[in-house]
Design a protein around this nucleic acid. Sequence first.
DNA 1: CGTCTTTGTTCTTTATATAGAACGCTCGTT
DNA 2: AACGAGCGTTCTATATAAAGAACAAAGACG
Lengths: 181, 181
Amino acid sequence: MDIAMLEALGRRITTLRQARELSLSALAVKAGVAKSNLSNLEQGRGNPTLDTLWRLAKQLKVPFGVLIATEVGMASSVIDNGMYITLLGQGSAAHPIDAYLMRVEAGASRLAEPHTCGSEEHIMVLKGEVEVGHHDATRQLGPGETTRFAADHVHIYRALDEDVAMLVTIIYPPVTQDHPA
Amino acid sequence: MDIAMLEALGRRITTLRQARELSLSALAVKAGVAKSNLSNLEQGRGNPTLDTLWRLAKQLKVPFGVLIATEVGMASSVIDNGMYITLLGQGSAAHPIDAYLMRVEAGASRLAEPHTCGSEEHIMVLKGEVEVGHHDATRQLGPGETTRFAADHVHIYRALDEDVAMLVTIIYPPVTQDHPA
DNA sequence: CGTCTTTGTTCTTTATATAGAACGCTCGTT
DNA sequence: AACGAGCGTTCTATATAAAGAACAAAGACG
């Protein structure tokens, strides 16, 4: 990994903690992690577990991405130049659905790789004009308009004159639950 | 933590991996993590290390925030017993649209007052079964299903057996606003 | 002054995440 | 068939993250 990143993470935790006026011990207790663990983390040693990070983020009341915000180029929700994506919510295991808020800057476009075979994508435009769909059959949508297409082929999003915001919902094929022995 | 979150993380990794057309083994090699580790992760077992997550995110070319479901950062407010709503985004002034993530606990229901005359409401269900619409003409929707109705009459949301999550988009009538100051 | 409390550090110990090998499985190929 | 190559799973072994106790240092308060 990158020790610089770990150090940055440590400093960030320290900063956030102090901003909340919590002592290291206090945060450790509230978050339910060992003092030693937290101490090491803040010093940039170690390699925290998702669980640990989760508890800390929860107590510090910051979104997860903020803890990991990075100079290494993996900013919290930028995926491309002019493209931002945020996970909003998801369905149950039996009905796997992911909902994202996607923003595209004016003029930007993005080619999306196919998702799982059989998945569909549903778009609802909030703001701006956007061209979406398979590259040979796109549709142009404005605010309030929706479309739906198979997501297991390459598809494109392109913002026209204006910044675009849209809800993107990916509907995966239902899980054929296998019965454990 | 939440094992549901781990399962979601697993699903997401699987999806992203398949979208890149990588086999589990291939991704494991490219990312530099053990196959067994990745396999367990995708099955929702375990509690990955920041290092592991980092390498995977890097190879999958996704931001961290996307890999990790971030309900923590989601400031939601309770509006009724069993009802939670979060504002996700809004359209422009010229095209006023509000998008919300609404969650309703199993069995709960809510009667919504009419909105601005001429406004429409669009529903996309993420999770659970819900009954929505005007009280004399409701529709029952499951995950991935959508409906749209005039929102300037009283309407109802009712979660059936299961907790419900849905995207609610309110589309106000276009503003015939000319010449802004 | 002493002696409590609270600070953050660094020990030791235990739990477990990861690595690596071995497994059964499904395909192509000969 | 038999074989090999790929797949994803599940073993075992090892490295290490996390927990808990002990630590020195710095106030707080009588």
